[in-house]
């Protein structure tokens, strides 16, 4: 049958559609583009995640705080990724590095900022501010629309339950040592108690902060959440104007 030249494109499609095997391979070809783009970069993760000195896995208390952060859906309003744009670095601090999320399962980058970015919230405010702000955000920030989380201060933290998160994270690839897994529950209590002997804990988690993060006698979910937020972004601090080559291992 005579072909009109301007119909070649549609005709090609018609011919493919009518040959099942050709059509199957065409579908596979198109779908594999999506797979290639999504999956292939994972095999190059060693090339793209630069090693950064000072990064360590979360302490058990911080990991518990992170679990509470996820449970309460903080990511719904707060991102944890400072992008390399001038307006972001001048407000929030140095841009986030891939290595800073390397131990996150799942990562908390996000793109929705109803509240501010929290990637470098650690050390920006005092512990007391965090506790009072979580108890009643409007007491310290009158214009805030964040819900209060006062119940966290009344919820005791069960070290045995949250210690298992360390093991779970190890199974997901976080490099926790056997010693860190075995001492997880004890380390959780040690970190929240300034009077406890922290030598073993600090040997396992160099540079971690050991103090009473809130005024509670026993660790609560509030303690864990404040401990988590006070370490966010503090492990890799650098001047984005002149990134220190020595920072990279």
């Amino acid at each position: 049958m005579a072909q009109q030249p301007r119909r070649r494109f549609v005709d090609l499609h018609g011919r493919i559609e009518r040959r099942a095997l050709v059509f199957v391979f065409a579908i596979l070809g198109v779908c594999s583009v999506g797979g290639l783009v999504e999956i292939a970069p994972l095999f190059a993760i060693e090339n793209t995640v630069e090693p950064v000195r000072g990064m360590r896995p979360y302490t058990p208390l911080e990991l518990a705080g992170r679990a509470i952060y996820l449970r309460e859906g903080c990511y719904g309003c707060h991102s944890q990724q400072i992008r390399p744009f001038r307006d972001e670095v001048e407000r929030y601090g140095a841009y986030s590095l891939a290595a800073e999320s390397a131990f996150d399962h799942p990562f908390q980058w996000g793109s929705k900022r109803t509240g501010p970015d929290l990637a470098r919230i650690g050390g920006r405010y005092s512990d007391e501010w965090h506790v009072r702000h979580l108890m009643n955000p409007r007491e310290v920030v009158p214009a805030s629309i964040m819900p209060p989380y006062a119940f966290l201060a009344r919820a005791p933290l069960d070290p045995q339950v949250y210690a298992r998160h360390v093991l779970t994270n190890r199974r997901l690839g976080v490099p926790y040592s056997d010693e860190q897994v075995a001492n997880a529950a004890a380390d959780m209590l040690t970190q929240a108690n300034p009077d406890a002997d922290g030598a073993g804990f600090l040997a396992r988690y160099p540079g971690a902060a050991q103090r009473a993060f809130d005024a509670s006698a026993r660790p609560t979910e509030m303690t864990a959440l404040v401990a988590y937020m006070q370490m966010l972004g503090t492990l890799a601090q650098f001047d984005w104007r002149q990134p220190d080559p020595a920072m990279l291992r």
Binding site: A40, P41, F43, A44, I45, N47, T48, E50, P51, P84, F85, R86, V89, Y95, L97, A98, W240, R241, P243, L248
Partner: peptide
């Protein structure tokens, strides 16, 4: 990503563009 080496991605694309260098240049212009 297979061509990338850590955070310095300026050698990966033909234009030699990297987000970090662009940020420093932006700050320099400011």
């Amino acid at each position: 990503p297979f061509l990338s080496h850590g955070g310095d991605s300026s050698r990966v694309g033909l234009l030699g563009w990297s987000s970090r260098a662009a940020l420093v240049a932006d700050a320099g212009r400011a």
